[in-house]
Each structure stands twice: as structure tokens, then as C-alpha cells.
Simulated scan of single mutants.
Amino acid sequence: MNGFEVVALGLLAVGGWFWFDSLKAREAGIAAVRAACAREGVQLLDETVVGQGMCLARDDEGRAVLQRSFAFEYSDSGYDRFRGGVTLRGREVVLLDLAAHRPRFHIVQ
């Protein structure tokens, strides 16, 4: 093997790892969103999440991990749509936003 083949094989391996890791993170996001929707009594629409962004971040132990953000849509009545979001560091959920369907109250003094 010459140098080009070694580099190409290395890039292919990194690409395969990234693809597999992205699928696992997406599955973890979907599982977290399904559980949150069940707790809130709302319906996850399309049964999927959509990638919104990715960056490097540090986990609780200080290691560099990929932080991914996903968006999803849900409904509380079946006649409306609300957007939610979930953020994962590695495969750990660090933020899950499912508050758009809750009424907002204003205190009048």
C-alpha cells in the first residue's frame, strides 16, 4: 500500500465511524423524545427527528464529544403542530424542549 491508499482507507474508516455514531445519536434522540411525549400526553408527529446542527463540546468528564441538535414536531390535539428540540452530547440528552403547547400566563397587577 502506498501513502495515498493508507490515507484514503483512514478517511473511509473515519467516515464510517461518523455515520454509525450519527445514527446512534439520532436513535437516542428519538427515544428521549418519544418518552417525553408520552409523559406530556402529546403525540410525536412523523415519529422522527431532524438534525439541526453539530459542534464539539465537553462532557462532564471534560472529554471532547460531538454535540448534536435535533428538531421535531408534536401535537397535543391532532389538529395543531408545535416544534420541539432535543440536544445531545454524545448520546446523553442535555436539553429537551417540549413546552410550546403549554399555555403562557401573564400576571396582571
Rank of each mutant, 00 (worst) to 15 (best):
R81H: 07
G16N: 05
V86I: 04
L23Q: 15
L45R: 06
Q67A: 05
E73F: 08
G78Q: 04
L9Y: 12
L66E: 12
A8M: 10
R26S: 03
L56S: 09
D80Q: 02
K24L: 14
G53I: 00
R89Q: 10
A28V: 02
E27W: 10
F4V: 15
D21V: 07
E61I: 13
L66R: 11
F18H: 13
R63L: 12
D21N: 13
V42Y: 06
I30F: 08
T48A: 15
R26H: 04
A38M: 08
R26L: 09
V14I: 15
F72G: 02
V14M: 11
G10V: 12
G29N: 04
L45W: 03
R68S: 00
R58G: 13
G84P: 04
V6T: 08
Q43N: 14
V42E: 02
E73G: 15
R68D: 01
E5D: 06
V33P: 01
W17M: 11
D21P: 01
A64Q: 14
L9D: 12
F72N: 00
R83M: 09
D59C: 01
S69C: 12
G51D: 08
E5V: 03
I30T: 07
E40H: 07
L56D: 05
R89F: 05
W19H: 11
Q43R: 14
S22D: 11
A64L: 12
R63A: 11
R81F: 09
L23S: 15
G16H: 03
R89N: 09
E73K: 08
L9I: 11
V6D: 06
A32W: 00
E5N: 07
F72K: 00
A36T: 06
Q52E: 13
M1C: 10
L12M: 14
R58P: 10
R63E: 12
M1A: 13
E61V: 13
G78M: 03
S77C: 09
L11G: 09
